[in-house]
Design a protein around this nucleic acid. Structure first.
Length: 577
RNA sequence: CGGGGUGUAGCGCAGCUUGGUAGCGCAACUGGUUUGGGACCAGUGGGCCGCGGGUUCAAAUCCUGCCACCCCGACCA
């Protein structure tokens, strides 16, 4: 394409709303455009990148026998009620009504829809396994959309669903998708980790998350340099410290005014945080109206892992809310800031495993301004449930090998789930086996955030001048920048090179805009075109300048050599992987 | 949902304290001079100053309600 004929709109300055590189550069390069908070449109260059990513996804999905379809974004509530997720999905679901007051939602994911198709169209074991996928716009009414494409309310997602006869089949489908995902993200040029993950609102048993390494990512992964541990921090087991060996001392109530926080308390009593237990009070809703009070006790220096808590309670995450302390006090006797395990009533007590055998702890006395010293589980109170409730942190013992764990941040670009029979059972997706008996299908689902992947690539590939697209996803491979378009010799040579590149299958641009060279260079850098061939004064003797976006070197060579160099570089980058 | 901040031309901002007919830079348009890293000169167009209510002779400016957007936290594939 000739740039003079294209709609490009680059910005010299970064819009104030953008904070992170991917957001800033995608806006500045004119690749995306915000409509409202968390809702973006894709302009010509940006959409080309999206299509490049989609094409990689398609090729790898098709290679595994996936079949592409396209379902509606609008979904009827009935299917969600059938699976039980109309309530469970919570406020993130974008709900709407038609003129007859019938409930619908904009699909945040499509398990129900795909299950519905399969149950009505697949009846025989001969039709299985099956893998269907789509690339489509998804809607999640995020509480806090953030960072441009990173967390948006409308986004492009590839979602695939596998249907198998049995667990063995599911396992095979799952690892094939895992393999496809590795190929996809590798081809996109991403540095990523595949880590064990929680299954969240989707449900199911096993899950892996594909996390692109990035400081600005919202996902945290725990990994170990000594073994193969790799899991999201939500998922990672935290084994905690060994209990100290010491005699159990007698309970002692102490006056501790103004010590509502652990920090205040340890200062007041001059003890270590590891000797304290902190209480977190919640209401756990079983449905819209019915709830029970829950208190989680963890060591004073620990952070609660909410995912572990809701999994233990078997409720969706939005059904767990911090308790109103005044209300709770009436029912359980708990006092905010002074809650302890002794004397608590009418509430479920969950105890972090680390505290099970810990000796002589300090906790609230359920009485304002008082704490109790030397509390020992078993002797002084009994928990309803003892389990791992804490968030793993840098330096904690690796649950697999005991070495200190490391924590890294990243962007979740994909996730694979073994759903098992969660949906097929609820929605009666069955097939007839060889003996004419009904069997419930085993399902898996597999998502890739296409638009988020685009942002993740920019996070990993940029410099102070803009984006540096890997060739595989670049909107165009090469740009021929004619320095002075009024110079006939330059224009002629530039056009020849441009035509030559196109004729050998390279996606080329001709910057024939009547602009100064600096403008063209800045734009080419900002938009991240991998190869630039500059046609300037040297054109009279057939010489041009060849430059790669990712390298600083500029090399003068003949036009013919530049074309060869470009072809060689682009082929190498595309097929090296 | 809690805390903080911001809404003035397409983008970035000043003006608001102390009310008096709307300003700068970039971008755009016209003409000219330029032409290898975001040129220069001259000229031009472009604003319900987020929206509503109030105070006042007079409101971008003061008061008030609402809305939107951003950041931190909470929360979330």
């Amino acid at each position: 394409m000739k740039l003079s004929k294209m709609h490009i709109h680059t910005l010299r300055e970064a819009p104030t709303e953008a904070e992170i590189p991917s957001h800033i550069y995608l806006l500045r390069a004119g690749m995306i455009r915000k409509l409202v908070s968390g809702v973006y449109g894709y302009m010509p260059f940006g959409y080309r990148v999206i299509r490049k990513i989609e094409e990689i996804v398609r090729q790898e999905m098709d290679a595994k026998g996936g079949q592409e379809i396209l379902m509606s974004a609008i979904q009827p509530a009935e299917l969600w009620q059938e699976s039980g997720r109309w309530y469970a999905y919570g406020p993130e679901m974008w709900r709407l009504k038609d003129r007859n007051e019938r409930d619908f939602c904009l699909g945040p994911t499509h398990e129900e829809i795909f299950t519905d198709i399969i149950r009505s169209e697949v009846t025989s074991h001969r039709q299985l396994p099956m893998n269907l996928y789509q690339i489509q716009t998804k809607y999640r009414d995020e509480q806090r959309p953030r960072f441009g494409l990173m967390r948006s309310r409308e986004f492009i997602m590839k979602d695939a669903y596998s249907f198998d006869k049995d667990k063995e089949g599911l396992d095979k489908s799952y690892w094939e998708m895992y393999d496809a995902y590795e190929k996809i993200f590798t081809r996109c040029g991403l540095e990523y980790r595949a880590v064990e993950a929680d299954t969240g609102a989707i449900g199911g048993s096993d899950s892996h998350e594909f996390t692109a390494i990035s400081e600005v990512g919202e996902s945290e992964v725990a990994y170990c340099d000594s073994c193969d541990l790799a899991a999201t921090t939500e998922r990672a087991e935290c084994v905690g410290d060994e209990p100290s060996v010491e005699p159990e001392l007698a309970l002692e109530e102490v006056h501790t005014p103004n010590t509502k926080t652990i920090d205040d308390l340890v200062k007041f009593l001059t003890i270590h945080k590891k000797k304290t237990m902190k209480a977190l009070l919640f209401q756990a809703y079983k449905d819209e109206t019915n709830f029970e009070y829950v208190v989680a006790f963890i060591r004073g220096d620990r952070e609660l892992n909410v995912v572990k808590l809701v999994n233990a309670l078997n409720i969706p995450e939005h059904a767990l809310v911090f308790a109103n302390e005044i209300e709770m006090n009436k029912v359980t006797g708990a006092v905010g800031g002074f809650t302890g395990p002794i004397g608590l009533q009418n509430c479920k007590i969950l105890l972090d495993a680390e505290l099970k055998d810990a000796k002589n702890l300090v906790a609230g006395a359920n009485k304002a301004d008082y704490h109790v010293k030397n509390i020992n589980h078993g002797r002084d109170f009994t928990a309803d449930l003892i389990l791992d409730l804490k968030l793993i942190k840098e330096g904690d013992k690796c649950p697999k090998c005991g070495a200190p764990v490391r924590i890294a941040r990243g962007i979740e670009v994909g996730q694979v789930f073994k759903l098992g029979t969660k949906y097929s059972e609820a929605m009666k997706a069955v097939y007839k086996d060889e003996n004419m008996k009904d069997q419930v299908m085993e399902m898996g689902c597999y998502g890739i955030g296409v638009s988020r992947t685009m942002a993740a690539i920019v996070e990993q590939y940029h410099d102070e001048n803009g984006i540096i697209w890997p060739v595989a996803v670049a909107p165009y491979h090469a740009i021929v920048s004619v320095v002075n378009v009024k110079d006939e010799g330059q224009m002629k040579l530039g056009t020849e090179i441009y035509e030559e590149l196109k004729s050998v299958g390279i996606e080329a641009l001709l910057d024939d805009r009547d602009e100064r060279a600096g403008v063209k260079f800045k734009d080419a850098d900002l938009m991240g075109i991998p190869v630039r061939i500059t046609v300037g004064k040297g054109a009279v003797s057939g010489m041009v300048e060849y430059k790669l976006r990712k390298e600083a070197d500029k090399v003068d060579m003949t036009a013919k050599d530049a074309v060869h160099a470009a072809v060689g570089f682009i082929d190498g980058e595309m097929f090296d992987k």
